[in-house]
Write a protein that binds this DNA or RNA. Structure first.
Lengths: 246, 246
DNA sequence: TTATAACCCGTACATCGTACGGAAAGAGAG
DNA sequence: CTCTCTTTCCGTACGATGTACGGGTTATAA
């Protein structure tokens, strides 16, 4: 059983170190099939509804069969993450660091829009697979020209990626919100009660700016503009480091 | 049953609109008790282990009793979030927008360190309670001096808060990682296999910078410095908007 | 004292991840 | 071709979770 025999790292790099053929009953599915089915499942139903039973069903296989190829749910998710990063589309980085970093941001946003569950996954611990490492290597090239220490370069990249992540989540939330309910419905449901509490008078700034932000969110074009604004702020901040080295 | 009778907004503002006393058997617990127990539970055990059964147990009450005071798990979490924001410590904002925003960041970081689960909670939809609104109102004062449109002001604040959030998660992850396992243990477990795959030669940038970033993470002081670096970048980026209005 | 309203909560169900162990299936030896 | 051995497949089972339902309990108001 691959799932119990080999560690996560071995499984992540399975294409570079294929296991020697073994005697006995041959497997009906492969790790790749499990990972692909997992990704399709997560893409389609979302992370909240993601379950091993559904993945197994998609493969036409019993649930416990999965455990012969993958150690557990958490490991499968790690493999899925690395696979997505491996399959990620990108252009080889060119131009100034600023252009490269903007491209990195755009490519990551595209990745998270193709696989929204990636933005909802908790991946504090790094996934040390070929996809993740290759992506990291490529993206580091964008911050390499900056006059920063190594740790700061990592931090600069992480800053951009974390921004893109939260931006992707916000854009997704806005998308479903738009399709879920019109502002009028929302008002009928909650807004009226809030008004009765005198919220507008007691929280004038919050009301004014909150409304503007809400309207911007509801207009798809403005939501994109908000993303661009945030990214520009970030890049300008990094440009400051470029001009005046620390 | 308060949990089914009133909506989420009513429950959030329960202290301003206390329900009139009602005939019948008096309740043994209050919404506040449930919310407080929930916060203690989440603080102590973490969000992953958070369950209604445990909250009920802490209150010395059956699980289903909770449903008499709160609609469901998701609503309880919303109430907990708003309560934390209401109890959050803060100094009234003074100084330049930059000083105020730095203070907002520090206060939010403190909030997330006191209640780490807040950083792991998915709160795309705003929680429209007194805690959240008050916090938003107060924090908007920091970006109000900036020469930006209303939507951009919200975006600027969100940018800082999202950074603090991911920073808090990184700091927490580093903390548990430090206590979990020494770098030597890690190397024995995974690093050796990676080296065997020729990772250092194939991903030189990633190896060099990844190592530097890892070491910085492992030194508590450097991890804090990384946070400061990110915040400075952000604020510098916003300062650009200050100098040259859009 | 009685009626009534409200609350408490035991039971039950669907769903989840996953441990265990036996059935099944192919490969190689004779 | 048959037997044996190795490996894979997966049914069953367990504990945990959120929550629907309905009956027992306990106050207040008449």
């Amino acid at each position: 059983m691959e799932g119990s025999r080999v560690g996560t790292v071995q499984l992540l790099w399975r294409h570079e170190r294929p296991l020697p053929p073994r005697p006995g009953r041959p497997a009906t599915i492969t790790v790749d099939a499990v990972v692909d089915a997992g990704i399709e499942e997560a893409d389609g139903r979302g992370l909240a509804a993601f379950s091993l039973r559904r993945v197994a069903e998609r493969l036409g296989v019993g649930v416990m069969t999965l455990y012969g190829h993958v150690a557990n749910r958490a490991q499968l998710l790690e493999l899925m993450v690395d696979q997505c990063r491996l399959d990620m589309e990108f252009a080889s980085p060119t131009g100034s660091w600023r252009e490269m970093l903007a491209q990195v941001a755009a490519e990551n946003l595209a990745l998270l829009e193709r696989h929204p569950w990636l933005a909802h996954l908790e991946t504090e611990r790094a996934v040390l697979g070929p996809g993740t490492l290759g992506k990291y290597e490529r993206e580091l090239a964008a911050v390499e020209p900056l006059p920063l220490g190594d740790a700061a370069k990592d931090q600069a990249l992480a800053l951009v990626l974390s921004f893109v992540r939260s931006s992707a989540r916000a854009l997704e939330a806005a998308r479903v919100e738009r399709s879920d309910e019109t502002p009028e419905q929302w008002w009928e449901r909650e807004g009226a009660e809030l008004a009765a509490l005198g919220v507008e008078e007691r929280f004038p700034l919050a009301s004014r700016i909150g409304q503007a932000a809400g309207e911007a969110t509801n207009a798809a074009a403005d939501a994109r503009a908000a993303h661009a604004f945030g990214l520009a702020v970030l890049l300008d901040g990094l440009a400051e480091r470029d001009a005046e080295p620390v």
